[in-house]
Computed example of a mutant assay.
Amino acid sequence: MVPDTRTAASRLLEQLPARQGFGDATLIKHRPGSIDLGGGNPDVEALPTALYRDAARDLTEGDAFAASLRYVPAPGIPALRTWIAEREGVDAERVIVTTGGAHGLALAVLGTLDAGDEIVVDDPVYPLFLRTLDLVGAHPVPIRVDAHGIDVDELERRLLAGLRPKALFTVPTFQNPSGGTLPDDRARRLAELADRFGFTIIFDDPYREVGFEPGGVDVRSRQLDSDRVIAVNTFSKTLGPALRVGWIVVPEALAERFVRLRNRLDGLTSGTLQELVLRIVQRQEYPAALAAAGVGYGRKARALQQALESRFGDAIEITEPSGGFFLWARLHGDADFARLHALAQDEGVFFQRGEWFAVDDDAHLRGTMRLSFSEQPTEALVEGVERLHRAWRQLG
Rank of each mutant, 00 (worst) to 15 (best):
N263G: 11
R311I: 05
I248L: 05
R262V: 07
L47I: 07
E93H: 14
A85N: 05
P142Q: 09
Q282D: 00
R186S: 14
R222F: 08
E252W: 12
A147R: 06
Q376T: 10
G180D: 02
W247G: 00
V136A: 03
D151N: 04
G267I: 03
I150M: 04
L308S: 05
L278A: 00
L12D: 00
A301T: 07
A291S: 07
L308R: 03
L155K: 14
T319M: 09
L388E: 03
P287A: 03
V277P: 00
F203K: 01
L276C: 06
G38W: 06
N41G: 11
W83V: 00
D314P: 07
A358F: 07
L130N: 01
F258E: 04
G162S: 09
R339N: 12
L278G: 00
N176S: 07
R330N: 09
A358K: 14
V109N: 07
A391W: 03
G198D: 13
L190S: 03
R228Y: 05
P206F: 01
R57K: 14
E252I: 11
G38R: 15
E154S: 11
R257S: 15
Q284F: 00
T200E: 09
R94P: 09
M1K: 15
I96P: 02
R299I: 10
K29Q: 14
S178M: 14
H332Q: 13
K300T: 02
G162D: 03
P32N: 13
L308E: 04
P78S: 08
D63V: 13
D266A: 14
E347F: 03
L128F: 13
L163H: 09
R302A: 11
D361E: 10
L110E: 08
A138P: 03
L168P: 04
G354H: 11
